[in-house]
Amino acid sequence: MRPFTYERPKAIAEAVSMARSEGAGHVNAPVQYLGGGTTLLDLMKLDVMQPTRLVDISRLDDRLLRGVSRNREGLRIGALSSMAELADNGMLARDYPVLQQSLWLAASQQLRNMARVGGNVLQRTRCPYFRDTSYSECNKRIPGSGCAAMDGVNRLHAVLGVSDKCIAAYPGDWAQGLAALDAVVEVLGPGGARSVPFGELHRPPGETPHIETSLQPGELITGFVVPGEPWPRSLYRKVRDRESYAFANASAAVALRMRGDVAEDIRIGLGGVATTPWRARTAEGMLRGKPLTEAAIRAAAEAEFAQARPREHNRFKVALGPATITRALLEAKAMEV
């Protein structure tokens, strides 16, 4: 961990003005916001992130950043809500179970108490070659240096959205639900406020895996809006090696609007298998307006993974991904709503 100055501004405007910096991309900017700190401080200890100034926003009590509200547009969630607080939210559990479950099934209660839902969507990959600076090859850490994961141990790496430069998996859970429900990200930065469709927040690695999001240096996520009606028939299915406190080998955030056996609307977000929170649009397209049978789901799910590019140890995800979608959709279909 490199030396840094620690600031605790009293107001959101002050925070944003403190965070103004020149930097190559949001994650490598010399000034970083400190919310829960569960990713940032971890990566600073590992010397992977080296900011020189931390702006602690965790105590800002601006209404913009706090709480859950509903209006005609839909559901709004303040970015400084803790994961634990939302996981215990009864309304969310009833009307948006996919969101509530994705929080509850993530990390541990201690981490959920600390982590904020705004910062959580920016959680960085668990790729071991990225997290350990003693590896000289990591295009995400050192652009152009190569990728040790390609021929290394890659059991937990991505099979979707990969490039020749990077196969690091996006590790979070909460983002999958937001991706599935077409959430909008509210952002405040030195240049003012703007909105970003959730699907445009994360950037696939492509040629530039070191640029992970479309955020600019100094920009702060202030909240999320989930538009439209609630999604009571929705759930988050997380598949992992141990029962709790583990990252997903695969996960599916699914939401359905059914008419009889037919899926009038269907949303599928995938985790654990892709470089970014993945929207399974191919599968959705094949199933929308169709009866949800196990065979139809299986076929659509496999079609989604037709584009998968596995490596030596993560080949099983090409089977696990469709199995996870299938299980999640069958379980969502069977929900009593």
């Binding site: 668990r126 937990l156 141990r242 029962e243 406190y245 583990a246």
Partner: peptide, 10 residues
Amino acid sequence: AEYLVAVNAD
């Protein structure tokens, strides 16, 4: 976190 040992839920 990646070398998995049993947790209570297991």
